[in-house]
Structure formats: structure tokens, C-alpha cells
Write a protein that binds this DNA or RNA. Sequence first.
DNA 1: TATTGTTATACTCTATAACTATA
DNA 2: TATAGTTATAGAGTATAACAATA
Lengths: 152, 152
Amino acid sequence: MSKQTAPQAIDYGDLNTLMGYKLRRAQVSFFDSFAQRCSKFGITPGLFGVLSLVKHNPGQTQSAIANALGNDRSAMVSVVDKLEAMQVLVRKPSATDRRSHALFLTKEGEKYYAELITQVREHEQQFMDLLQDDEAAIISDVLDRFAAVKSS
Amino acid sequence: MSKQTAPQAIDYGDLNTLMGYKLRRAQVSFFDSFAQRCSKFGITPGLFGVLSLVKHNPGQTQSAIANALGNDRSAMVSVVDKLEAMQVLVRKPSATDRRSHALFLTKEGEKYYAELITQVREHEQQFMDLLQDDEAAIISDVLDRFAAVKSS
DNA sequence: TATTGTTATACTCTATAACTATA
DNA sequence: TATAGTTATAGAGTATAACAATA
């Protein structure tokens, strides 16, 4: 026999009733799926977030982008390094403050982002297809409310 | 003047339309809030998940718990070590398989969990209070559907 | 041969502190 | 004095590979 004991069914107990755990499971599933579909682009959700924010806010500084994403400045360094190595983003000296770097998508970066966002939207659609009628609007709303809860 | 340039408003662009990003923001907010409320218990969402699963499935092995949570069994070692150090959980030799450890809550662990789950439920309620009418049921349903998406 | 717990290892993510050059 | 980017560092979290004991 291949297994002596059949794998016993697990009772998820409280976890099955907790929105926090459902939220985590859903996010992990979503990001795993994202990573798989976008693997050929060599990008992660974290890199995508920075790229997208620079795309929509050209010329902003690293600190401004970090703040907007809720990350620390120091974490931005390697992220921007990677995106620069991919030649989709560039640091340019700020015109008004020589301490800071203004971030821009390269010409290649614009093309890259255009192709990437198409994949990302298809991926979104794959999940949105699981919803019916007005559910999407409700989820979107509720997640925004959850995100707005201040923790201290 | 305290700042030379007023902080420019950030356009979240595509991110504001992507469920994946909303999901992440909501989860981070939820877990930050959880961590704050449960800090006096010295526990994290990850530790709580294991403890809760052992509570509801006494005698299961480390591998079974790891599998149920989608983790690798190697990651369980330090988690169980921590919970054992907190004296809320014990490894006992399995009666049927001398390779494996059966996990149980200690007497203290049962008391600890009872107090903890009360806090966790209050925390849940804090977020559920943001919802109205049938929204909770819809969110719960949709998150389950998202979690069920297989990624390969 | 396969599985359980374990160790060693490594990689990502995240955060803190300190440095430098600027402001 | 304070801020931007950077470096060094350290802590979680997660994963792979290999090993000893056992199945």
C-alpha cells in the first residue's frame, strides 16, 4: 500500500469563519496566479506596483513613490535598481533638488508596460469572471473600506 | 517654511482599478490591525493559524498541519518550536508512527486560545462593522472563490 | 523506496540605523 | 536642522536539498 493511513480530513474550525484568513488565502491565490501569468515579463506584484505608479506619475521621487505604496525609502533602492536593469525605468536628476531622483519610464518601458497591463487586465478578468452582477462593485468597495482602517 | 514643495497628490492610476492591489492593501491593513490588537498575546497571524488548526484537529502531525495551511513542512519546525516555548502546544510521539509527532494544545494552551479567540473575534467584528446587511456573506463567498483558483 | 522531522541554506520582503550630499 | 538616496544589517517568511530514523 502506498499510504498506511488515509489522509484525514482537516477541520478548519475557526479559520473558516475568519475574514482575515479568507482574505489571506484569496490574496495568496491571486498573487500566485499573477506571478505565473506574468513570469515571462520577469516581474512581481511589487515591481509592477512601482512601475505602474511611475507610469502614472512621471517625475516623482523615490520617496514619494515609496510613501504612496506604504513602503520604506530604503526598500525602493533595489526595486528601482532592478527596474533600471530591465531598462524600463530611469533615474534622472531632479531639476529642483539635487538630493532626489526623478523617476521616468523609458521608451522601452512604455512599450513594456503597455504589453504588461494587457496581461494584468486579462488576469483580472479571469478572477472577475468568477463574480456575478454587482458583486465586483461590492468587493471593490469593501476592500477599500478595509484598507482605510488605521492601525494606530 | 517646513517643506519647500507641497507633497504632490499621487495618481494611483491602474492600481486603483485592480482587484489584486485592493486585495493586498486590505490584507495588509487587516493583518497590521490584528498584530496590534494581539501583540500582548505574543502571537502572529501565522502562529495563530497553526494553533487554531491544532486546537480543532488535536493529534495531527506537523506535515498534516503544514499541508492544510499550504506551507512546507520545514517551515513548521520553528513555528512549533515557538508555540512549544510559549507552552501552549506540545509535540507528543505518535502512537502509530514513530517518525511523526502528534500535536496537541496544552492545558494552558486551551486557556490561552480561549482568551485569544475572543480578541480575534472582537477584531473581526471591528471590520465586520464596516459592512452592511448581506455584504459580509458576499465577501466571504467571493474570497472563497478567489482562494479556490488553481494556479498551475 | 517513500515519508517525517530536522538542519542547513538561500532568497525575498521589510524595516532600522547611520552615512553623504544636499536643502 | 531636516530630507533624499544609499548602505549595512537584521528579522520575518518561505522554499529546496539532504540527512537520519522509520515505514
